[in-house]
């Protein structure tokens, strides 16, 4: 894959990133199977070129945007972010991407828009998990407009200086570092600005366990496990669990988005 020249970003964490091997062999990408090793094993067959993203709903310039065109929206930056899975494990990942806000500003958000809905590719012929039962495909996610416009929210197309590996959501994925990983939808094909809160896949499946907001929050447990601490992947067999930080450590930047909200009710 071609090297991507990316500028460093003040939003990057100082923490040491996980290895490429760790980041690319331990994935939840149910379109390619149930096991964390399945995406690496089965994503190779995915066609990511040609690729386009359909942008619609309450925008000024709706249409189908070619991937190369989308990537021209803003200069790529390296964003080294903490990543916290709802399953209570964590990594640090050097993404390459640009703010989603830049794309939304480019297509023009209409005044009535309050939410952004996202959709993953639906292609059962190349995504074996979509041929099986369990999840109503395609995978869908959503953000409130202010969350989507936040400078930490990026569209990533690279990792470790190169194009995004397929198992990590190539060719284009969302990354929202203060939310549980399932919000950061992969292999993005559709962005729709809406007035109403869009439905989201995990909330549809288990509304008691996965809320729309899904902000990392050590004080609100998953019904089946505690979110107070996490295991850092790569830390070794006998490493201690590390405490989970509110908003995954991004509270200074994003806590104000939720001022006055009951985060226990809006989990």
């Amino acid at each position: 894959a071609a090297r991507i020249a990316a500028a460093p970003s003040p939003y990057s964490t100082e923490a040491a990133p996980n290895t490429l091997e760790e980041i690319t062999s331990y994935n939840n990408f149910y379109e390619f199977g149930w096991d964390k090793g399945d995406p690496k094993a089965h994503a190779g067959a995915l066609t990511t070129d040609p690729w386009s993203v359909e942008i619609g709903g309450l925008v000024e310039k709706p249409g189908s945007y070619d991937l190369a065109d989308v990537l021209k929206t803003a200069a790529p930056e390296e964003r080294i972010y903490r990543f916290r899975c709802v399953e209570a494990w964590a990594m640090v990942i050097p993404w390459i991407g640009f703010p989603l806000a830049a794309l939304l500003n480019r297509v023009g958000v209409q005044p009535g828009a309050k939410y952004v809905a996202f959709e993953t590719l639906l292609r059962p012929s190349e995504m074996p998990g979509q041929r099986g039962p369990g999840i109503d495909w395609p995978y869908v996610e959503g953000l409130r407009l202010d969350e989507a416009m936040h400078p930490l929210t990026i569209l990533a197309s690279g990792l470790y200086g190169e194009e995004l590996p397929k198992q990590n959501g190539a060719p284009l994925r969302l990354v929202v570092p203060w939310k549980y990983g399932f919000k950061s939808i992969k292999s993005l094909v559709k962005i729709t600005l809406t007035e109403r809160e869009p439905r989201t896949t995990w909330n549809d499946l288990q509304p008691r366990e996965y809320g729309f907001y899904a902000n990392v929050n050590p004080a609100v447990d998953h019904p089946r496990w505690s979110q107070a601490s996490e295991r850092r992947i790569g830390a070794g067999l006998f490493a201690a669990r590390q405490p989970t930080l509110p908003f995954n450590g991004y509270g200074d930047q994003v806590a104000s988005l939720y001022a006055g909200m009951d985060l226990r009710a809006n989990y």
Partner: peptide, 14 residues
């Protein structure tokens, strides 16, 4: 575990 074949998350693997 010793050979690294257990995967990148040995705890869950074991």
């Amino acid at each position: 575990t010793l050979s690294g074949g257990i995967g990148v998350d040995p705890v869950k693997g074991i």
